[in-house]
């Protein structure tokens, strides 16, 4: 049985549950997981129940990296740190926004831990408010599309680059729709000494507005359109990318999600889609995806 037990309270088609399961498949029993506040924390641990088959701690929203640092320091001080992996599994709000400072501190100090960001591109637990990971023109409850708005006006924050700038020995992007790739990268991250990072793209059916049966398909479209490039960085250099044999236009990814619906119905939407296509084009060029 999975180390993240079934019977938790995740939505049908939940991306977080898949991510959590795959991460534990990769790491195995000998780990300690730290979770910031978020969907994963809430739906896995309604007291007195817990879905976690590994030691797990949740403290607050913005401090998971600091808590994990402390766990790692304690294990070192107590002479227990041998093979036990210290893992953070946190959402994009906890990672890119409110917890960024604590992450910066932990990566600077060089703790031997792996931080996994499960990025569903908004604050889903509180009802789909925008975060620093929300992509351009996605409609959320605090960046709604409206008569004079095409939704979120900002670009997604480039978190892997921020982590790489801290000198992390291993940074990778992954997707829940490519489980073997994700598992391989999490393994590599945890086997690399020092603070490592895996940024997992995770389509949320509730927040992105698609059928729960389509989670994997939507995640694949993100990769196939180059909206979510899969790559690895070692010591700041890109060392591996997943090439695209036949890249699809971004419309194919956008049109299956309710959060982009306004781009296809409102006047001027076609022009805005071009700006999103430009992001995919940049990804292709920057990472050499073709």
């Amino acid at each position: 049985m999975s180390l993240l037990a079934p019977g938790h309270r995740g939505c049908a088609g939940c991306c977080d549950a898949l991510a959590g399961k795959f991460v534990l498949d990769a790491v195995g029993k000998d780990c300690i997981v730290v979770s910031p506040t978020g969907c994963l924390e809430v739906f896995t641990t309604p007291y007195p129940e817990s879905a976690w088959g590994v030691p797990w701690i949740h403290s607050l929203f913005e401090n998971a990296a600091a808590v994990a640092s402390g766990v790692e320091a304690a294990y070192k001080a107590l002479g227990k740190k041998n093979k036990t992996k210290i893992i953070v599994i946190g959402g994009d709000g906890a990672t890119l926004d409110i917890g960024l400072q604590a992450i910066s501190g932990a990566f600077e100090r060089g703790h031997d831990l792996t931080y996994i960001c499960v990025d569903n591109e908004a604050y889903m637990n509180t009802g789909v408010q925008r975060s620093g990971a929300t992509p351009l023109f996605a409609s959320t409850t605090t960046s709604p599309a409206g008569k004079v708005s095409f939704g979120n006006p900002q670009h997604k924050k480039n978190m892997p680059a921020i982590i790489a700038a801290h000198g992390s020995p291993y940074v990778a992007t992954a997707s829940i729709s490519y489980a073997p790739d994700l598992i391989k990268k999490v393994k590599k991250a945890t086997e690399t000494k020092g603070p490592t990072y895996v940024h997992v793209h995770a389509p949320c059916c509730t927040g992105w507005k698609f059928e729960g049966s389509k989670t994997i398909e939507v995640g694949r479209l993100a990769v196939e359109t180059a909206m979510w490039p899969l790559y690895e960085m070692e010591n700041g250099e890109v060392t591996g990318v997943r090439k695209l044999k036949k890249r699809k236009p971004v419309e194919e990814y956008l049109k299956v999600q309710g959060r982009y619906k306004h781009l296809f119905t409102a006047e001027g939407g076609t022009e805005e889609i071009k700006k999103i296509q430009a992001i995919a084009d940049w990804n292709v060029k920057h990472f050499g995806l073709e």
């Binding site: 701690i57 403290s59 401090n63 600091a66 640092s69 304690a74 501190g105």
Partner: peptide, 26 residues
């Protein structure tokens, strides 16, 4: 002991929450 130079008081106490839960005197 492990002496952690953290980036804020918030992380100072947060690290000790993790350390204490892991069995350390903090």
């Amino acid at each position: 002991c492990e002496y952690m130079n953290v980036e804020s008081e918030f992380s100072a106490i947060s690290a000790l929450i993790g350390a204490s839960a892991a069995g350390a005197r903090t």
